[in-house]
């Protein structure tokens, strides 16, 4: 009896500890984000409690701020093109790794992965040197090349891993049933690696979108959004920044839900 009571007591206590632990992990992860969202609607330019009232004015001022909007457009431009570039180079590279046997293949694989673990500042400086050497003038395009270099490995590793799991007999079956190589690629291989491509593209886009170190070294006169935010921060944290942050979070959520549902639809097959 007492034993049983003890057991339930301990279990209750255990559950309590467990719940508290999970709550604190979630708080650790998301409290800053919640603070940011709350203050973006706070009717006061100082970021202090107590909250003084609800307002849309920070959002209005974001959409009236030409510099910020230009930076946002630049970021979209850079992230989109960098993503396309990583896909265009990364997917064939993943195929080469999976299909071809060539001397130095292992070295090639390691070297492709390297830029991901290399600190952005190193990538930035070295590419800056290279561009200067080649006489390139710095612009958003040089930023795109820099981002694509660093993010290539994301696409290569994801697509390569998927190709490894894709049984070669699918391709043989397609060829056996009369599909020419290009038909096999578009009708059988591509649908099966699509989710890996979309997933790595979304990740590349996000990473490129908030990248600072490489951008810092490689951009000319144009600013991307993180660079703009970082430069205005020197004048202090404004609720306007919070509004931008909230918008980015909302957009990311949409992207995440989209990609998860796409991947899930893929897995169900």
């Amino acid at each position: 009896m007492i034993q049983a009571l003890n057991n339930t007591l301990f279990r209750r206590l255990g559950d309590g500890v467990f719940v508290t632990m999970i709550a604190s992990i979630l708080a650790f992860l998301y409290l800053p984000v919640i603070v940011l969202i709350v203050f973006s609607f706070n009717d006061s330019s100082s970021l202090t409690l107590p909250l003084s009232g609800f307002t849309w004015k920070w959002y209005q001022s974001v959409f009236a701020n030409e510099d910020l909007l230009r930076a946002l457009r630049n970021s979209f431009y850079v992230a989109s093109l960098a993503t396309v570039l990583t896909l265009v180079i990364g997917v064939p590279a993943a195929f080469a790794l999976d299909r071809l046997n060539f001397p130095g293949k292992t070295l090639f694989r390691r070297l492709v992965l390297l830029p991901l673990v290399l600190p952005g500042i190193i990538t930035g400086i070295s590419m800056l040197n290279l561009f200067k050497l080649m006489g390139f003038s710095l612009s958003l395009e040089t930023v795109i090349i820099g981002h694509a270099t660093a993010l290539l490995s994301v696409v290569v590793t994801q697509v390569f891993a998927r190709l490894q799991r894709l049984s070669r007999s699918y391709e043989e079956a397609a060829a056996d049933l009369g599909a020419r190589p290009w038909e096999t690629f578009f009708l059988v291989i591509l649908p099966n690696i699509r989710s890996a491509m979309i997933g790595s593209a979304l990740l590349s886009f996000t990473l490129s979108f908030d990248e600072i170190p490489v951008t810092f070294f490689l951009t000319g006169r144009d600013n991307t959004l993180p660079m703009y935010i970082w430069s205005t921060m020197r004048r202090g944290l404004t609720p306007e920044i919070n509004a931008v942050g909230t918008l980015i979070i909302a957009a990311s959520l949409v992207l995440i839900v989209l990609s998860v549902s796409l991947l899930k639809a893929d897995d169900e097959r």
Binding site: S167, S169, Y170, E172, A173, A174, V188, P191, N192, D266, R269
Partner: peptide, 10 residues
């Protein structure tokens, strides 16, 4: 007819 059938999963 393949040993693992090789039915296109998609």
């Amino acid at each position: 007819v393949f040993q693992d059938y090789a039915l296109f999963p998609h």
